[in-house]
Design a protein around this nucleic acid. Structure first.
Length: 275
DNA sequence: GTGCTTGTTGGCCA
DNA sequence: GTGGCCAACAAGCA
């Protein structure tokens, strides 16, 4: 599930509960895939007793800063989530990281374990954070940059290209399908086959979908919706794409699903046509 | 049991 | 060297 807007939703859960709070205890699921590449005792020592100072989300990743120089990175992978529980929370087998404060337990749960925790101790920004490409909503995400990228990946299906984090950070499977549906571009089109007008539409829809998804899923300011997806309008492809028999909100026609670019893709044949 | 899965990476091949 | 494709990772669910 976690793409850019869901990631921001989860970041806010921890941030609203615990920013400024001191970490009293750290539980790490040692040896399991999400944490096995980090020095868990160093992370535990560095974080215990420090306050959560600030946090950010970028693309599909989060950065939580503690005390003077410690930071944790979180990537939720396919099935990761963050939530807040009571301070007597007992971690289960899929709870790979739990930060306890006096009032809360901050839990990272990931059954499928494609997620990843990073730990970094330095005043410098961690390399895995600074390597993230410029956000879709930043000024650096220009029409020209998108057009140039489509030329470079001209023989790949446009669906696969939208999933490339080096140019479309934070966009995942459902956002890519939403963007293509709104742009009226079939997911199997070769990236190089889009006209200049279509490429511009695609670029604009990347920004629109990112902005609207953030507002609908992660809320505005300090507001946080009760759950993911409660704020998503019926007019989006999103709510119709998963189940058999789903219909296009714009044409009413049956949606189609197939594997394109290695991933399950959903489109509306009435709107999105192959040449 | 089978066949899926909202992500990323590394290896193979053209 | 570059671009494109796909298996692997691991576990749960229908």
């Amino acid at each position: 599930m976690p793409e850019l807007a869901e990631v921001e939703f989860y970041r806010k859960r921890w941030a609203l509960a615990a920013t400024g709070q001191r970490i009293t205890r750290v539980a790490l699921n040692e040896g399991k895939r999400p944490v096995r590449h980090i020095d868990v005792s160093a992370a535990r020592d560095a974080l215990t007793g420090e306050k959560l100072v600030s946090s950010e989300a970028a693309a599909k990743q989060m950065l939580f800063r503690f005390g003077k120089d410690a930071s944790l990175g979180v990537h939720l992978g396919m099935t990761g989530e963050l939530f807040v529980a009571a301070p007597d929370f007992a971690p289960g087998k899929h709870d790979h990281l739990v930060l306890f404060t006096r009032r809360h337990a901050l839990v990272f749960r990931d059954p499928r374990m494609f997620g990843r925790i990073e730990f970094h101790r330095s005043k410098e920004t961690p390399p895995w954070w600074s390597r993230i490409a410029p956000a879709v909503l930043s000024a650096a995400f220009t029409r020209e940059a998108v057009a140039a990228f489509l030329r470079r990946r001209s023989r790949s299906p446009i669906k696969a290209v939208l999933l490339m984090q080096e140019r479309f950070p934070g966009i995942g499977n459902w956002m890519a399908d939403e963007i293509l549906w709104r742009s009226a571009v079939h997911p199997a089109r070769r990236a190089g086959s889009l006209s200049a007008t279509e490429a511009t539409t695609l670029w604009r829809q990347c920004r629109t979908v990112a902005r609207q998804a953030l507002a609908a899923i992660a809320g505005r300011g300090n507001a946080l919706p009760a759950d993911l997806n409660v704020g998503i309008p019926r007019s989006w492809l999103f709510l119709h794409r998963w189940s058999d028999g789903g219909r296009c909100p714009r044409t009413g026609a049956l949606l189609r699903r197939a594997t394109i670019g290695g991933r399950t893709s959903c489109w509306s044949p009435a709107r999105q046509k192959l040449p």
